[in-house]
Amino acid sequence: MSTMTINLKIWRQKNTEAKGEFQVYKLNDVNEHMSFLEMLDVLNENLIKEGKDPVEFDYDCREGICGSCNLVVNGRAHGPKRLTAVCQLHMRTYSDGDTIVIEPPRAAAFPVIKDLVVDRSAFDRIIEAGGYVSVKTGAAPEANLIPVQEEVANQAFDYATCIGCGACVAACPNSSASLFTASKLAHLNRLPQGKPEREKRTVAMVQQMEAEGFGDCSNYAECEAVCPVGISISSIAEMRKNYLKAIF
């Protein structure tokens, strides 16, 4: 088991209003089997022992499914490993003496709360605008009444796996939330249960996305490249098609 020394350059910001800055830390004895977030835990333990403020960052499940973690590592959302949330990244990816720059996802619609923690409530408001099927508890018909083609069900599932982390926004030069919004639309709009509200849903969610201050999509496809669950940008094309159909 090899250990290494890692140099860290981490964004520190006291609160939303404060001006932030990078601070440099040196961490010895980093074990290759540590996860990236465990490496930050160790840094924090050291900082607390030294009487300093630990680095705040969001995390919860540490299994890549809850979407809480959203660090931008050396300029890339979730770090260097494709299809991997930063909580599933391990230190064996790095070498002794490496310098790692860690920032929050930067977007006007994601204000910094503290250090690497940002406010992503804009995502909740996009879902609130129409990201659901309007069915009351108790009003559902028998589950097998409406068959869904296996292929359609599988596609819907692929889009439904979005974890809502916001990496797509962080990676987009326009800070667009198009991939997030389009993935939910592509999930619900193609299912028979979601079809009756397709147009209404599409317009409501797209307009909410704009109202939150996210930019528009210019087809850079950076979002798809960093998405930890591999959501396809075809969903964005589909969203635009449905949006245009709905408003004209």
Binding site: A140, P147, Q149, A153, Q193
Partner: peptide, 17 residues
Amino acid sequence: DQAVAQGVPFGRDYGGL
């Protein structure tokens, strides 16, 4: 029933059930 009506994409067989 409730989950399917909400659009939860459960695994299905070739016939769509």
